[in-house]
């Protein structure tokens, strides 16, 4: 029964089969990663671009190809627009995709996006024909500007990368959702399934997470939990929750 994924997510004209987008970073090895990816049901997964190493070769790419999962290269590690643009162009050349998860972070301690470099890079990459999915702050104004320069989605953080602190400013996420004309993907900060469900209940179109699964004690089981959470949150959002009330309201008939 598939009653919850009733409307397919479309990003930049491309259908995305699952609303759970995963990352590959942090998995102990490719076998663990494979089981987690399969359990997550994801159809789109991030990779990073690094110098080739004879030892690792192209293993993660081979795995994603075998599983039929589309690759979403990121620009992780880039600190300036110029670095991010070069990395995106190399990714397009290596992976033959125009998709890019644009990350331009300000410093290693927070890994928070540098909004000025991010917007600059987004504009350049859109002009160069990329389908740009920017990792951004939970800032409704920046999200709007990223959409205005032509990004195919906006991906606000719930909290800093890898922290598992969940969604620290749900109201900002709701404001981004309310204003956005492109899909909103909650990216970063998810620690457990209830937070993935919350992102969807706030109106996000998808969730992107990596660490919460790959560094869980049992990645495969957590991947499955995240899949259910995203589906549940999406269904709840579209089911129309009851309004909050101050006083109780009996759910059984009164005694005559």
């Amino acid at each position: 029964m598939d009653v919850v994924q009733d409307e397919t997510l479309v990003v930049g004209g491309r259908k995305i089969g699952s609303r759970l987008i995963t990352g590959t970073g942090g998995a102990a090895n490719l076998e663990v990663l494979e089981r987690a990816l399969v359990a997550s049901g994801t159809t789109l997964t991030t990779v990073a671009m690094r110098r080739i190493d004879a030892r690792t070769g192209t293993g993660v790419l081979d795995l994603l190809r075998r599983l039929g999962i589309e690759v979403l290269p990121n620009t992780a590690g880039c600190r300036t627009a110029a670095e991010a643009v070069l990395t995106a162009r190399l990714a397009r050349e290596a992976l033959e995709t125009d998709l890019v998860k644009l990350e331009v972070v300000a410093d290693e301690r927070t890994l928070l996006p540098d909004p000025i470099e991010l917007l600059d890079a987004a504009e350049q990459l859109v002009d160069d024909g990329f389908t740009v999915l920017p990792y951004t702050n939970d800032d409704p104004v920046l999200a709007r500007k990223l959409e205005q320069v032509g990004c195919a989605a906006v991906m606000p953080l719930g909290s800093p990368i890898g922290t598992g602190l969940g969604i620290r400013n749900p109201h900002n996420i709701e404001m981004i959702v309310a204003e956005a004309g492109v899909p909103v993907v909650l990216d970063a900060g998810i620690g457990t399934a209830s937070e993935a469900a919350q992102a969807m209940e706030l109106g996000c179109d998808a969730v992107l997470l990596a660490t919460a699964v790959t560094r869980a004690a049992d990645p495969e089981r957590m991947a499955h939990a995240m899949r259910l959470a995203v589906e549940a949150g999406y269904a709840a959002r579209h089911a129309g929750r009851i309004p909050r009330r101050y006083w109780a309201q009996a759910s059984s008939p009164e005694i005559d």
């Binding site: 990352g23 671009m49 110098r51 190493d53 993660v60 690759v71 990350e103």
Partner: peptide, 26 residues
């Protein structure tokens, strides 16, 4: 340097060549 140009692009002395691939990340 695009793939189609690899065979025809000459390197200068002291050129810095970066060869990248996808790795686990993100």
């Amino acid at each position: 340097v695009r793939r189609a140009d690899w065979a025809s692009t000459r390197l200068a002395a002291n050129a810095a060549v970066e060869v990248l691939t996808a790795v686990q990340g993100g």
